[in-house]
Design a protein around this nucleic acid. Sequence first.
DNA 1: CTGTTAGCGCATTCAA
DNA 2: TTGAATGCGCTAACAG
Lengths: 342, 342
Amino acid sequence: MATIKEVAELAGVTPTTVSNVLRDRGRVGTATRERVLNAVAAKGYRPNLNARALVERRAPTLALMLGCITNPFYPEFTLQTNNAARRHGRFLLVCNTDYEPDGGSGFLAEVAGSLSDGVLVANTGSLQVDELKSIQATGTPVVISVWEFPDVDPGIPCVAFDSHKAGYIATDHLLDLGHSRIGALVGSEKNGIHGGRYKGFCDALRARKVKHLKTDARFGTDSYQGGFDAALDLLTSTPDLTAIFVSNDLPALGALNAAASLGFNVPEDLSIVGITNIELTSQSRPALTTVAIPTAEMAEKSVDLLIKLASNDPDAPAMVRTADPVLIKRASTAAPKSRATK
Amino acid sequence: MATIKEVAELAGVTPTTVSNVLRDRGRVGTATRERVLNAVAAKGYRPNLNARALVERRAPTLALMLGCITNPFYPEFTLQTNNAARRHGRFLLVCNTDYEPDGGSGFLAEVAGSLSDGVLVANTGSLQVDELKSIQATGTPVVISVWEFPDVDPGIPCVAFDSHKAGYIATDHLLDLGHSRIGALVGSEKNGIHGGRYKGFCDALRARKVKHLKTDARFGTDSYQGGFDAALDLLTSTPDLTAIFVSNDLPALGALNAAASLGFNVPEDLSIVGITNIELTSQSRPALTTVAIPTAEMAEKSVDLLIKLASNDPDAPAMVRTADPVLIKRASTAAPKSRATK
DNA sequence: CTGTTAGCGCATTCAA
DNA sequence: TTGAATGCGCTAACAG
């Protein structure tokens, strides 16, 4: 690689001038500028981003922490984050924490120190907030990109969507269709990451005075297989359900296939609704009704917030709220048969 | 952030000693070592990776170029690549080229110069080989991670799998089941990226003296929707096909749903086989029979090769070949009905 | 075993 | 409008 010095020599100027030309700082005569540009082209010169980062005390990359890029939500989120980062001239360092022996703490510490100008956290699962705070304390800004609880301040700058409302909307949709015996598949502990979504479900039922039996809920893992297994279990033990609320799309897709494998016709025999609106929901058979979360908005706002923090903008908010979730009506929900034939 | 100098002062040693302790270079007394470690902990010190990269003339990151992380193959490949990179102590910079105004060339140039120690290219679609060569010429090693043609040297170090054999195996499977009227959905031009797979298809048919009509093939785009649309078209105009060979899983999944929407029962009325074995193939209904490509192996070997090149290992090969593709028999293929009822 | 010196490639003073 | 000096934080080479 050519260095700035070589280019400067070829152009008959000093490195300072080359640097000024390359960064459009003005203060350079047209003729000189021309000469420099030619020299740059001739040498195929590219500035060394590490050296620049070192002297500017800011890195050109942002780090995105996520559990595993393999979970379909993440690629979509990563793409949006990447694009937002690119708009700010940054690169994105993608950090899978799931396969790190220490759950990602070391990862975080290494990356946060110098490689990246800030850290976006998409998974609050494995990474503890305390850990994030200690990173923050070293001077590297941290933003929680996907925070489910707009009413709870995690103590770290975050972008929050209303998970309670998402659960509520999904459930309201089922109630509107006339369902009254609705099961719930939750991709976490009751008070875990999907706790807000589940609470929205419960509150929607309560608002219509529909009873929710403990036995109609399953708490498990947020995965396709998790949803599949839980649905198998739920539908086997409670076959008279006419609808299932699932706290996330991926397990909802699992539930969809589990239902089919048990001989249920979706949506005739059983309605299923998810949350998130990942791409796959429009590729399933039937396409999955879901409640869309503002993924792109979260990604953008996260990056914006992180950039603000990185530049010590004093009015960087502690929490940014997104637009409300919205129902995406597709083909996996319909009125219950019992009612239609009544 | 604390600097090495501060730590050194606190420990009463020089930066060199701190550096040596942190990198386990030996040459340090136990007592000193202890003092340094304490000072490091006390200050919460983390080495500045940029500074280190600058002086060591090697970056801690590897760049992975791909079209769009949203294509389900990429997350899986990215994960494997990431894990391999981590084993070498590197971080992974993920570069989506699809949304770059220049198709990724600038991206590549910036990243390759200094931010990363080498570039892995998973998409040979948009990026031209010439461009890769010019990057390589600047001294940054480049590896094509997913090369389809083991018999063709792209002129860049690469990891190749036998795409022809993949197509051949998929087709042989259909022939073995007794199909003789087989359609083809190809996710590229005839001589494009999936050309090897298609040639494998043709050669398998020819080997059994089964005729392949031009009208039974469609060349299009490598996407879910592409497969869906092409299958719709193909099945509408040629409903007497009993099987379809699809050059990639994603369009195969589209074809699966297109077939269902036309009232075909898969596999009773129609068999469908794909190539790659992405995770989704086991989550479709029916699960998709496919020919597995050694994704993890390619990722690992790519990283290994890149690392070799980065360290100027003289016996880094120009091409690494992977194990052969292997048939994954699932539920989307069966003997043709006509034959069963004959 | 530990310290000293030098410099990686660049941007930022300040001087001319 | 341009140049010279300085140092970002770290490691390498050598000296002691």
